[in-house]
Design a protein around this nucleic acid. Structure first.
Length: 661
RNA sequence: GCUGCUGUAGCUCAGAGGUAGAGCACUCCCUUGGUAAGGGAGAGGUCGAGAGUUCAAUUCUCUCCAGCAGCACCA
């Protein structure tokens, strides 16, 4: 029997017979470790205690104290336990797959009857029974034929399909939780009793396509969350509650930022408060872009289909466009007669993107290589017929405005423009309170146009640009557009949700289709590259992110209502107006509250409304020309001279790019 | 778009086969109150839209619309 050497994390090496299991190793190290062990990491692979180790390896034994591994195991075991529970309650249910995800797991089932929320309780109860039984977990490796036959006989077509999709040389591993069996890569715990029965919860039921393919069967997915202890579960549920409180749809209503209604699904009715945030952000971006070498333009909203046919969008994205048909023969007096005259009907589309229009601006007049790089920016209002199920508050809408720009440049300029953009974006994100962000680099997809050399060059330029900014990125191989690679910029909000905002895409295709050219140094016509880029993405989404990130308590300069001056007695009313006037003159968004209400009431109402500063004035303040300053979230107040407060607040109200250093 | 759920006053929600209720918000009155809800009165609803069953539908059934969760999508 061959001998192998296993090296522990402390560097200690031990000799064993090949084929020893991780569990046996743990027991050999110490009796107590043998009891506490749940799994092992063997050469960076998460190993089941029951799996044999065949060669020399680094090994680390895990116990429940190793959060990462413990979570993975217990969540995966819970997936199996849940599937078993479901099949025990409803034997006619077919099982499919059940992976571990962030904070928990899901399992997809095929069952004629829909699961109801009440069913979740029943399933949970059954799961707890299974956990209490402490059923042993057992694993075996099976031959393909045996496995296929097994699942065919049991009428589990999804499992059969799964096996057929697994490459032939991979071993098929089976796991049993008690008598219940599932095809599974593992690893797992040793018995069902190791799963903490009080630290999991079934969360929701939803539809999900088999194999993620919308053309295939829709299954029923049950989501669960699980942790190593019940305090952690409670903390997680608590976090979800907090997240719900800062939902921009809820805050949007509470802060009177915007509303949406049935007649215009996916489009925003901005109220004064929300529009203040929006325009403040837009003014800021306009200044940043001007300083960043962009020229701002504006292009039409409704464009004849001919242009979309030329650009290629009519072919591929027609179903995502709002089509506007206009009878050109209409004269306003004989609508009925004219409407029948189809020959004069003109078909337009609301622009779903700005790029083709920007090329039209570029194409006016001859361009020289001296004009490049030419950076054309537009706060472009776009309309897209997004699928109904995709809409989400103001984060995913049908009508939105991008902080869009297209940079026309030569191939050699791509790298510098890319680096320049990353710096541009990084500064803006930092000023808006997001010092860190993630870059995803999407490279050439399977289906693509262009030569390999060109892809090599452009991908290399982007990579080099990122490198020069000293930033890191994650590679998304094959995720690029069919015409070129792209960078996407992601922000993480205060509760860990990730949002795609910025983007940078290299496009040699559209200039080709729309025949954009420039005259080179050699006097000949050349084809420019087009770089699509957006910093915030869309104002709608970004306002939503800001609201959620700050739980409505926006930075002072972005807060729609910055200061409320509240009278304590009506004798102070005149002074209140004076204070408001002085603050307004200083550039602060101030308003008066001289309603016949107690100061307690006013403080509460404006605090709930997330007004960052409340200035209360009564007889004393009138006398001394002071104000009592109360900051949102703080209990104590301080009485300060009005003149001083006006200066302080005026400074805070200044956007970050205009502040003196 | 798909699966499931939901739609009652501005908001949060209760309700029942016989044309509706609470709290907050709103209006008016009293109260001039010192930092998170003072008191009283009043007004406010084709119960998402349409069709069907019924003597009778907001309630039951169907269709549509919108929203929510997830999936798919996000050029």
């Amino acid at each position: 029997m061959a001998r192998i050497t296993l090296t522990l994390p402390d560097g200690n090496a031990r000799q064993y017979d090949a084929g020893i299991t991780a569990g046996e190793v743990a027991a050999d190290i110490s009796k107590s470790l043998g009891k506490k062990a749940i799994s092992a990491t063997v050469n960076n692979m998460h190993y089941d205690l029951a799996w044999p180790i065949d060669g020399d390896a680094d090994i680390a034994i895990h116990t429940m104290a190793d959060e990462e591994q413990a979570n993975e195991l217990l969540r995966h075991d819970l997936a199996h336990i849940m599937a078993r529970a479901v099949q025990e309650i409803w034997p006619d249910t077919r099982v499919t797959i059940g992976p571990v995800i962030k904070d928990g797991w899901y399992y997809d089932f095929d069952r004629a009857e829909p699961f109801t929320p009440e069913d979740l309780g029943e399933i949970e109860k059954k799961m707890k029974e299974i956990i209490n039984k402490r059923d042993p977990v057992r694993t075996e490796v099976w031959d393909r034929d045996v496995a296929l036959k097994y699942y065919e006989d049991r009428g589990e077509p999804y499992k059969v399909e799964l096996i057929e999709s697994i490459p032939g040389d991979e071993p098929l591993r089976m796991y049993w939780h008690g008598d219940w069996q599932d095809l599974c890569r593992g690893p797992h715990l040793q018995h069902t009793g190791q799963v903490p029965g009080d630290a999991f919860k079934l969360m929701s039921i939803a539809g999900a396509y088999w194999r993620g393919d919308s053309k295939r069967q829709m299954l029923q997915r049950i989501y669960g969350v699980a942790f190593t202890g019940k305090e952690k579960l409670r903390a997680h549920l608590n976090m979800l509650e907090e997240a719900a409180k800062r939902d921009h749809r809820k805050l949007g209503r509470e802060m009177d930022l915007f509303h949406m209604q049935e007649e215009a699904p996916g489009q925003v009715f901005w109220h004064p408060n929300g529009w203040t945030i929006y325009t403040t952000l837009q003014d800021y971006m306009r200044r940043k872009q001007r300083a960043g070498g962009y020229r701002e333009i504006n292009t039409p909203q409704i464009v004849d289909r001919k242009l979309w046919e030329l650009s290629g969008h009519w072919d591929k994205y027609q179903h995502h466009m709002f089509i506007v048909e206009v009878d050109e023969s209409r004269d306003g007096e004989h609508d009925d007669a004219a409407a029948t005259n189809k020959a004069e009907t003109r078909i337009n589309a609301l622009k779903p993107m700005n790029c083709p229009c920007h090329v039209q601006v570029y194409n006016q007049g001859l361009k020289s290589y001296r004009d490049l790089p030419l950076r054309l920016a537009e706060f472009g209002s776009c309309t897209r017929y997004e699928p109904s199920g995709a809409l989400h508050g103001i984060m995913r809408v049908r009508g939105f405005t991008q902080d869009d720009a297209h940079i026309f440049c030569t191939e050699e300029q791509i790298e510098a423009e890319c680096a320049r953009f990353i710096e541009f974006l990084a500064e803006i994100y930092a000023e808006l309170g997001f010092p860190t962000f993630e870059i995803k680099f999407a490279t050439r997809p399977e289906k693509r146009v262009g030569t390999e050399e060109s892809w090599d060059y452009v991908e290399n330029a982007l990579e080099e640009a990122i490198r020069k900014t000293g930033r890191t990125y994650t590679l998304e191989p094959g995720d690029g557009a069919f015409y070129g690679p792209k960078l996407d910029f992601y922000l993480t909000d205060a509760i860990g949700r990730v949002w795609q905002c910025g983007t940078f895409q290299v496009d040699p295709n559209l200039p080709e289709r729309l025949d954009a050219t420039y005259i080179g140094e050699d006097g000949a016509k050349h084809r420019p590259f087009m770089l699509h880029r957006a910093t915030l993405g869309s104002f709608e989404r970004f306002v939503g992110i800001l609201v959620e990130e700050h739980a409505g308590k926006l930075p002072f300069w972005l807060a729609p209502r910055q200061v409320v001056v509240a009278s304590i007695t009506s004798e102070a009313d005149d002074y209140v107006q004076e204070v408001v006037a002085e603050l307004l003159a200083a550039g602060v968004r101030a308003e008066a509250d001289v309603r016949n209400e107690k100061i307690n009431y006013k403080v509460r109402e404006h605090s709930v409304g997330k007004v960052p500063v409340i200035l209360a004035v009564g007889a004393r303040e009138v006398e001394d020309r002071t104000v009592s300053v109360r900051r949102l979230g703080e209990k104590q107040t301080s009485v300060q001279p009005l003149a001083e407060v006006a200066v302080t607040l005026a400074t805070e109200a200044t956007p970050p790019d205009l502040r003196a250093l």
